[in-house]
């Protein structure tokens, strides 16, 4: 046993792993610390304060930030709901549909938004909307985000569905449940953790998106990332660091939530089988 461990172990790999985590978290932690800096300068430390957090909600730019936050969150919620519904249907069709002609093509189409570079998606969507005369604004952002979120919602949902034995549905059928009732009362409760995970991922992806939104937002409409980008172009300001910290903590909270839901789902699945 000792020897196996020795063979597996390479000196220095632990240090590199620690370095990896320092690289990943270092910049984020430093921005978090400096967001509490009670100084107008971003270089000098002037003691701890919450003034920049107050500034976001009451300062000169607060109206802009509130509008941007409203746009970001309303678009993210709607895009996540629509893409999760579409992705759930697609996952059932792909995984419970058996083998059919064009299955690979169907899978490629569903994954297309992940495979095409984001900037290309942005260009193509802008050209498309301007050609058909679709007015650029919140609706165009919503449509683009929905498309982009589908594969992100699809992956955890289909992974979950693959782990579910079809015998549950067959049992429901034997008890004369129709297709909808089989889905609603049998399949959906078991799939639920996958659906929630997919929804949360889609939500974060939409909330975080900058490149596509920047191309198709139209004049005068901002989401949080585009508002932050606009500010940062003129130099990093302390209030932006406070805003970034809030957004960052929100994302981390959602990912943690998604992680624990996934874990609970796994535990349930194990007890069921």
């Amino acid at each position: 046993m000792d020897r196996t461990f020795d063979i597996k172990h390479y000196r220095g790999f632990f240090s590199i792993t620690c370095l990896c985590l320092v690289i990943l978290y270092g910049p984020l932690i430093i921005v978090m610390i400096y967001s509490f800096n009670d100084s107008v300068s971003i270089t000098n430390w002037g003691g701890i304060s919450l003034r920049w957090y107050v500034e976001i909600f009451t300062g000169l730019e607060s109206a802009k930030f509130k509008a941007a936050a409203w746009n970001s969150f309303s678009i993210a919620i709607m895009a996540a709901i629509v893409s999760t519904v579409i992705a759930t249907a697609a996952a059932i069709g792909m995984i419970r549909g058996g083998n059919f002609k064009g299955k690979f093509a169907s899978f490629a189409l569903i994954s297309l938004p992940i495979m095409v570079p984001e900037i290309v998606t942005a260009v193509a969507t802008l050209i498309f909307f301007s050609t058909i005369g679709f007015k650029l604004g919140t609706l165009s952002i919503l449509v683009a985000h929905t498309v982009f979120c589908i594969p992100f919602a699809y992956l955890p949902i289909s992974a979950r569905l693959q782990g579910i034995d079809a015998s549950y549905e067959e049992a429901a059928q034997d008890l004369f449940a129709n297709r909808w009732k089989t889905f609603r009362y049998v399949l959906m409760p078991i799939m639920w953790p996958g659906i929630v995970a997919g929804f949360l991922l889609a939500f974060i992806i939409s909330l975080d998106d900058f490149i596509i939104t920047n191309f198709i937002k139209g004049a005068g409409i901002e989401t949080l990332p585009t508002a932050i980008f606009g500010s940062v172009k003129q130099g990093i300001k302390p209030n932006i660091m406070a805003l970034s910290t809030l957004l960052l903590l929100f994302s981390i909270a959602l990912v943690t939530l998604s992680y624990f839901i996934g874990k609970r789902g796994e535990a349930n699945q194990n007890t069921q089988q």
Binding site: A90, G93, R96, G98, S106, I110, A166, E170, R179, F183
Partner: peptide
């Protein structure tokens, strides 16, 4: 994981995406 319940309607399930 194939079930006879959803495969007849797979086209309708995949169509939205």
């Amino acid at each position: 994981t194939v079930s006879a319940i959803f495969s007849p309607v797979r086209l309708w399930l995949l169509l939205p995406s």
